[in-house]
């Protein structure tokens, strides 16, 4: 077992453990902390795949953006307005059916896909390629996403201001 393999299993264990905390913890803040470590583990896996830009983006968007927003929401509603927020188990039977279906599909996909195995080489620079692709082949999706985000921004500002008037 090489160092690369050891790192993979360490990261995988970290992701699984923190994902389990995220799912099973009753306290919403603990869920968020579990999610934080899961995001970090996934970023580590991206680095091992040579996708450095993707890993940094994962940290910036998910840890710096989405998780902060999530924590903000929980804190504003729980400690300040005194709303009790705990996760519980509801609708046991439908949940089991849906989860079993998803697991079956995933397992089938894992078995059926022709996995490509390549040697681990020196990581190549990905940023320039990603940038060029965004400006050429994927220009339309890129622009659509940016317009969507702008609309969300304007909408959020509008909702935020409505109370003031």
């Amino acid at each position: 077992m090489t160092f690369f393999d050891v790192m993979f299993y360490v990261l995988a264990a970290m992701i699984l453990l923190s994902a389990a905390i995220m799912v099973f913890a009753k306290n919403l803040i603990y869920n968020a902390v579990g999610l934080l470590f899961a995001f970090f583990g996934v970023a580590g896996l991206y680095v091992m795949l040579g996708a450095d830009f993707l890993a940094a983006t994962q940290l910036l968007i998910y840890v710096g953006g989405i998780l902060v927003l999530l924590l903000f929401g929980v804190m504003l509603s729980q400690r300040i307005t005194g709303l009790e927020m705990r996760t519980g188990t509801l609708q046991m039977l439908p949940a089991v059916i849906v989860c079993a279906g998803v697991v079956a599909i995933l397992l089938r996909m894992i078995w059926m896909s022709p996995w490509q195995k390549t040697e681990v080489g020196e990581p190549a620079a990905t940023t320039r390629t990603i940038g060029t692709l965004f400006m050429t082949d994927y220009l339309i999706p890129f622009e659509i996403v940016s317009v969507l985000l702008l609309a969300a921004l304007v909408g959020a500002a509008f909702i935020g201001r409505r109370d003031a008037r």
Partner: peptide, 8 residues
């Protein structure tokens, strides 16, 4: 990216 961890 990594400094955004301090916010959390």
């Amino acid at each position: 990216a990594i400094t955004s961890l301090s916010v959390i």
